[in-house]
Design a protein around this nucleic acid. Structure first.
Length: 883
DNA sequence: GCTACTCGGGG
DNA sequence: GTGTACGAGTAGC
């Protein structure tokens, strides 16, 4: 039998563990393989480095099975010889931490005592997540501990290479109604009213289903919530998906449904073993345990893989699928649920659409390809790849490779060590070298990059914890500019350099295959593979400087960056001295070289020849590459620039505007800002015309002042995350929500709603001058053009222009901006005092003593000169204002 | 400029 | 489950 590994866990049989491998056979059948061990039971173990007789220490430890004296290399520092260490075998994996902590408390050096049993097994038997396993002469097992038909004993394990099997997907979405309208549903009290399910393979001839406690067209209805939830479990078990998906199901739908099952006294059992499904809250996030299936939450993956302003299902589907959610507001769900049959059916469609979209995201965009590749290359189980970050992947690779070569790994640090490391890291870890940018707008700049710089440095200089020379003196050692010393490859090749060599060579092979591959499906798979190899290679460097890492070594991290800084500095010098070109900028692994040619092909030729020349003079596997051309390059500061970029692709040269560190989209900016910033950059970079860009901006300022800009472009949007009166400070959108509630409680925005607002003219704090755009249009209110110019448009644009020495006054169109107060003073000479004016005549504040004008009252309530402030209007100064 | 805190998605 | 885990963006100093 042949099957692909989806999940691994263990169960206790006769007080000893038995490994279970959950997978999908080549014939599309779910399988569970049981592995007990061959002649001997396979048991958990860890290591202790001690000269003492450990058996004396372990007397009375009931969980210890046996001990062995074995030879291993210690992981940190170069050691000529393996050392005698104790290998302690245990009975119950779950009780390992207890013993580990007792030994640690007694001062013993403990190794590999924090490896989950399933990973201990996988490492020892060379099994990686999503691997194919070949089993011969399978023997069926008689057990009722798993909900899988094919249950077999595994005696011998052999892995093979094969394409991904066809997996079965289920997308679902729940709807629930809060008992208290307008609040967020509470899983303790508020029932689930409806669940939609979408199947990747038909289930009883259906592509989708909606189950609910109210009958309707196309709805499978149940009498009670309890029956519906039982129905949900039944469908899940019968359909038996490998992958469970939905939008934010991991942090909402699943925990919610589990609590509803508890309230209804249903045992939550819908995985592939007879263990209850649990969702544990860890630091405000849930971790769901669903044995044998993989939860792949579309929301989480999209958030990781795509950069967007917002990540709600509608925005995400619009951007990635060109589809939209059904148009139902949260506050409407209650009405539709309780209202007419037509309205109810709208709710059904809405619920179904959400599941469909979640499924489409996963399948149409092949979102999982990259993660399947990461699971295989790092050896991590698919669920862990989706749930956890880089650390776990790296440490899995490390465990595999260290063990294979006779090394053992340290344990993860304890809380107090992490805190110490965090402090030390800030002080001692030095990053890459950023070349001071040459001011101005440059033309024809070549971008040259070091190919995989940090991994290449690690390989070139044999940087590894296993080659680090600790307090020994040795000839021929390699010394980094940071001072650490490593043994050369001839003495011992480091494990990490070897890992990286393997990963990088494999990536080269995959890329070669990718070039000739024609089949689009296979191409996607190969592309995911090369991406995973790159991501993994690049993550090693960071690991040495990560305070929670098993191998945290600042000497190593600093050695890598110091070699990097040296390389970049030398490269800059080399290019400037030998070629006479100017290096206008560079960051960590790149140099931007300004040359005097126009033609792209010609420029590339020069770039290639410089790269070759530099590479020739570099050590080891270091390589400088031509990357792209900046036809125009505008550096603002270190780490911030805009460029008109040309890249050579398979279909010739492709151009785009590239920005780094310049915010073009920000949540709290209105559309006008991003549009204007974008256009300004375009004029500067593409037309090479600063004056024209200034003129364009002057025009926008004028349009705003003259109120010619569509109000839609001035709308700023924020989400009301809690009740409007629950905010501590003054929040613009919360203030508006309060106002709207006063006007019409029924239509007021509720918690979770997005609120769009504009800033209108007035005397209050800006945050209190927020208004509903519709209300502004209806009432013909005046927007605060000064706010939009000074606080929205100017900040980003000013940063760009200051790199070109264009001043703020030029941007505002000098002469035209006489402040209203100035005009007022000029008209009236000395301000006259008027007792009362109405609010719409007020246009600012004025000091009675020195006549200085203010749009907003200073915090002190008084003028800088100490004078009293009065309202000013076209008519003069008012003591009070009628509203 | 840096550090501390908040909030996202879901209904 | 031999594991205790974000991260971008904004407010505040």
């Amino acid at each position: 039998m042949l099957f692909q590994v989806l999940d691994v866990d263990y169960t206790i049989v006769n007080e000893l563990p038995v490994i279970r491998i959950f997978g999908k056979s080549d014939r599309g059948k779910p399988v569970c393989g049981f592995f007990e061990g061959n002649s001997e039971r396979y048991l958990p173990y860890f290591y202790v480095d001690s000269e003492m007789d450990i058996n004396k220490v372990l007397e009375g430890e009931t969980n210890v099975h046996k001990t062995e004296r074995v030879k291993r290399f210690l992981p940190i520092g170069y050691h000529k010889e393996k050392k005698d260490v104790w290998k302690i075998f245990l009975k119950n994996p779950a009780k390992t931490p207890e013993l580990r902590d007792r030994l640690k408390a007694k001062g013993f050096d403990v190794y590999e005592a924090d490896i989950p049993f399933k990973y201990r097994f996988m490492t020892d038997f060379g099994i990686r997540g999503m691997d194919w396993i070949e089993v011969e002469n399978e023997v069926p097992v008689n057990t009722n501990t798993v909900n899988v038909e094919s249950k077999i004993v595994i005696k011998k394990i052999k892995t093979t290479e094969r394409e991904l099997s066809d997996l079965k997907y289920l997308a679902f979405d729940i709807e629930c109604v809060p008992l208290k309208p307008g609040s967020v549903p509470d899983e303790k009290y508020d029932p689930v009213i409806m669940i939609s399910l979408v199947f990747s393979e038909p289930y009883k001839g259906k592509k989708s289903m909606v189950i609910s406690t109210r009958p309707g067209k196309g709805v499978t209805s149940f009498e009670t919530e309890k029956e519906m939830l039982e129905g949900f479990v039944k469908i899940m078990m019968e359909y038996d998906p490998d992958i469970l998906t939905g939008f934010n199901v991991k942090n909402f739908d699943i925990p919610y449904i589990l609590e509803r099952m508890r309230q209804n006294e249903i045992v939550p059992m819908f995985g592939r073993c007879k263990k209850q499904v649990t969702a544990n809250k860890v630091m405000s996030r849930y971790r769901v345990n669903l044995t044998g299936r993989i939860i792949a939450d579309s929301f989480e993956i999209v958030k990781r893989d795509f950069s967007m302003k917002r990540y709600d299902l509608n925005t995400v589907s619009e951007n990635l699928l060109n589809e939209n959610k059904e148009d139902v507001k949260h506050s409407e769900i209650d009405k539709l649920w309780k209202g007419s049959q037509d309205g109810y059916e709208k709710l059904v469609t809405y619920c179904l659409k959400d599941s469909k979209l979640a499924m489409s995201l996963l399948l149409k965009l092949n979102l999982l390809d990259k993660y399947f590749a990461l699971a295989k290359t790092s050896g991590t189980l698919m669920q862990d790849i989706l749930d956890s970050g880089e650390t776990m992947r790296i440490e899995n690779v490390l465990l595999n490779e260290f063990n294979k070569n006779g090394f053992i790994l340290p344990c993860r640090p304890e809380g107090s060590d992490v805190a110490k490391r965090e402090k030390q890291r800030i002080i001692e870890l030095k990053g890459g070298f950023v070349i001071e940018p040459k001011k101005g707008l440059h033309s024809s700049v070549i971008v040259l990059d070091f190919k995989s710089m940090y991994p290449s440095l690690i390989r070139t200089f044999n940087i590894c914890p296993t080659t680090l020379i600790i307090d020994e003196d040795m000839e021929n050692s390699i010394m980094s500019p940071a001072g650490a010393k490593f043994v050369p490859e001839s003495v011992r090749k480091g494990i990490i350099p070897s890992i990286l060599e393997g990963l990088m060579k494999e990536r080269g092979d995959v890329k070669k295959r990718l070039k000739v591959e024609k089949d689009p499906q296979k191409k996607k798979g190969l592309d995911a593979k090369q991406w995973a190899l790159k991501i993994l290679s690049n993550a090693f460097y960071g690991h040495f400087g990560y305070p929670r890492a098993k191998i945290y070594k600042l000497e190593i991290a600093n050695s890598i960056t110091s070699f990097g800084r040296e390389t970049i500095a030398r490269t800059k010098e080399f290019i400037e001295k030998k070629y006479g070109y100017e290096v206008v900028y560079g960051d960590t692994d790149s140099v931007m070289v300004k040359i005097d040619k126009e033609d792209l092909e010609e420029i590339k030729k020069i770039g290639d020849s410089i790269s070759r020349d530099v590479t020739k003079n570099l050590k080891g596997v270091m390589e400088l590459e031509f990357e792209k051309v900046f036809k125009r390059f505008l550096p603002l500061t270190k780490k911030r620039y805009a460029a008109w970029c040309f890249e050579l692709t398979q279909d010739g040269w492709k151009d785009k505007i590239e920005t780094k560190g310049i915010e073009t989209v920000r949540r709290d900016w209105c559309d006008l800002v991003s549009e204007t910033t974008k256009r300004v950059l375009e004029i500067i970079l593409k037309e090479n015309d600063i004056k024209s860009a200034v003129k364009f901006f002057n025009g926008i300022v004028k349009e705003v002042t003259e109120r010619k800009v569509s109000i839609q472009k001035l709308v700023i949007t924020k989400t009301l995350t809690k009740r409007a009166d629950g905010y501590a400070g003054v929040q613009p959108h919360a203030e508006l929500a309060k106002k709207m509630k006063k006007r019409s409680p029924a239509d007021a925005p509720g918690v979770g709603d997005r609120i769009g607002y504009v800033i209108i003219k007035g005397l209050d704090l800006v945050s209190k001058r927020t208004e509903d755009p519709m209300y502004v249009i209806e009432r013909g209110l005046e927007i605060d053009s000064k706010y939009y110019i000074e606080n929205q448009l100017l900040p980003p644009v000013e940063r760009i222009f200051s790199a070109l020495d264009v001043s703020k006054t030029e941007l505002l169109g000098k002469g035209k901006q006489i402040s209203l107060c100035g005009a007022l003073n000029n008209f009236s000479g000395k301000p006259k005092k008027i007792e009362k004016v109405s609010l719409d005549e007020v246009n600012g504040l004025i000091c009675v003593k020195c006549s200085k004008c203010y749009d907003m009252p200073p915090l002190t309530g008084l003028c800088e000169c100490g004078g009293e402030l009065m309202f000013s209007s076209v008519k003069g100064i008012a003591r009070s204002v009628t509203v």
